[in-house]
C-alpha cells in the first residue's frame, strides 16, 4: 500500500522558509509554504549584492526560487499564520482570514522586521531629505544611481552603524550581527561607484565575525580608502546648504567631532517580526528578552520550539546572515524529519 506523504507547513517564505520547504519537498514531503507578501523571497528581495563577496543577490534568489518551485510545494501568498496548536493527530494551523490547515509538523520561519528608522528621532529619518537606510541605499544600487534627493552627486556619505541595535532607547539591547559587514560592503560599493566620494563608517565595534568579513574590512581600508570613526553618532541636523551636520565623539581622539554629510545611511538592524510575535503570543511560544523566539536549548536544540511538531528556522530566533539562516533551516528540516519518522 502506498503511504500518503506527510504534510509540513512552513510559516514564512523568506530565506529560511524557502530553504526548509525545498529540502522537505525534495525528500518527498508535501509542503505548504505560507508567505505574507506577494512573493516569497523575504528581505532578500530588496538586496542588490551580498557580503562578503559582493555577488549579486539574484544568484541566491534564483537558487531559492528554484528550491521553492518544487512540485511538492504549495505556496500560499498574502497570508499569515495566526496560530498553531498541537493535537494528537498533528498540528492545527489557523491562517489569516480564518482558514484552517492540518499539518503533521510546522516550521516557523517568520523571520525579522527591519528596525523602523523613524524611531531614532535624532537622526531625522523621514524628516531630512538625505537621511536614508541601508535598504534605501541598496535600492539605489539596484537602480544604478547614487544621488542626493535633489539629484546631485554626493561628495561625502556617512554610514551609521547600530541603528536600532544595541540601543536601550529603542528597546533593543541585542546586536543584529550583519550590519557591520553590510556597512563595509556598501561603503566599498559607494567608493567603486563614486570614486571621488568620501565614505565614513561610524561604528562602536567592528563585529566582523564571519569568514572573509575581516578581510573585507581590511580591503575597505587598504584598497578603497573607506574611513572609520569610532563613535556613535549623537544627532543629525541640516544646515543652510541642506547638508547634514552630524555630531559624534571621535572616541579614539577623545574629542567631539562635527562633520557635514551629503547622505547619511542608517544601518538598520533586525527586530523580531511583528507577525512572528503575534503568532508566538497566540500559540504560546516563548520569547526571549530580545523578543526573538526562545528555542528549547540555546546550544543543541535551537530549532526546537518546546511544542511537539513545531520547529523554528532562521531569523525568527535571532539575527543571522544568509549562510547561517540556510544552515539553520536545514537543521530545522533534520529535526522535523526525525520527529515525523519517530
Amino acid at each position: 500500500m502506498k503511504t500518503v506523504p506527510k504534510h509540513v507547513l512552513v510559516a514564512g517564505g523568506g530565506v529560511a522558509g524557502m530553504e526548509a520547504a525545498g529540502a522537505l519537498a525534495e525528500m518527498g514531503y508535501r509542503v505548504t509554504l505560507v508567505e505574507k507578501g506577494d512573493d516569497p523571497g523575504g528581505h532578500l528581495l530588496q538586496w542588490h549584492a551580498l557580503f562578503p563577496d559582493r555577488r549579486p543577490a539574484d544568484e541566491v534568489r534564483s537558487y531559492l526560487r528554484k528550491r521553492a518551485g518544487h512540485h511538492n510545494i504549495n505556496i500560499i501568498t498574502r497570508t499569515t499564520v495566526e496560530k498553531v496548536r498541537h493535537h494528537p493527530g498533528g498540528v492545527r494551523v489557523i491562517l489569516s482570514g480564518g482558514t484552517e490547515e492540518e499539518a503533521d509538523a510546522v516550521i516557523v520561519a517568520t523571520g525579522f522586521d527591519l528596525f523602523d528608522a523613524h524611531r531614532k528621532e535624532e537622526y531625522g529619518y523621514g524628516i531630512y531629505d538625505n537621511v536614508i537606510t541601508s535598504v534605501d541605499l541598496e535600492a539605489m544600487f539596484n537602480r544604478g544611481r547614487l544621488e542626493k534627493a535633489d539629484g546631485t552627486v554626493p561628495s561625502r556619505i556617512g554610514l551609521i552603524h547600530c541603528v536600532g541595535s544595541r540601543d536601550e532607547k529603542v528597546n533593543n539591547n541585542h546586536c543584529s550581527k550583519v550590519c557591520c559587514v553590510t556597512a563595509v560592503k556598501q561603503a566599498i560599493e559607494i567608493r567603486q561607484m563614486l570614486p571621488s566620494c568620501e565614505v565614513f563608517c561610524f561604528y562602536m565595534d567592528m563585529r566582523m565575525y564571519g569568514p572573509y568579513y575581516e578581510e573585507l574590512y581590511r580591503e575597505s581600508q587598504e584598497v578603497h580608502n573607506v574611513n572609520f570613526i569610532r563613535g556613535k553618532v549623537s544627532e543629525a541636523s541640516v544646515n543652510i546648504n541642506n547638508r547634514l551636520v552630524i555630531k559624534v565623539e571621535d572616541t579614539l581622539a577623545g574629542r567631539p567631532l562635527k562633520m557635514e554629510l551629503d547622505i547619511m545611511v542608517l544601518m538598520v538592524g533586525m527586530e523580531m517580526a511583528e507577525s512572528g510575535a503575534k503568532l508566538a503570543e497566540a500559540s504560546g511560544f516563548r520569547q526571549g528578552i530580545n523578543r526573538f523566539l526562545e528555542s528549547g536549548d540555546h546550544h543543541y536544540g535551537n530549532n526546537l520550539s518546546g511544542i511537539k511538531g513545531v520547529f523554528y528556522a532562521g531569523t525568527c530566533t535571532a539575527p543571522m546572515n544568509i549562510t547561517d539562516t540556510i544552515s539553520h533551516a536545514r537543521a530545522a528540516v533534520a529535526e522535523t524529519v526525525r520527529y515525523l519518522k519517530a
Binding site: H118, G124, Y125, I127, D129
Partner: peptide, 10 residues
C-alpha cells in the same frame, strides 16, 4: 525637509 516626519514624532 519633510514636515510630515516631524508631525509624526509630535
Amino acid at each position: 525637509m519633510k514636515p510630515e516626519g516631524k508631525k509624526r514624532i509630535w
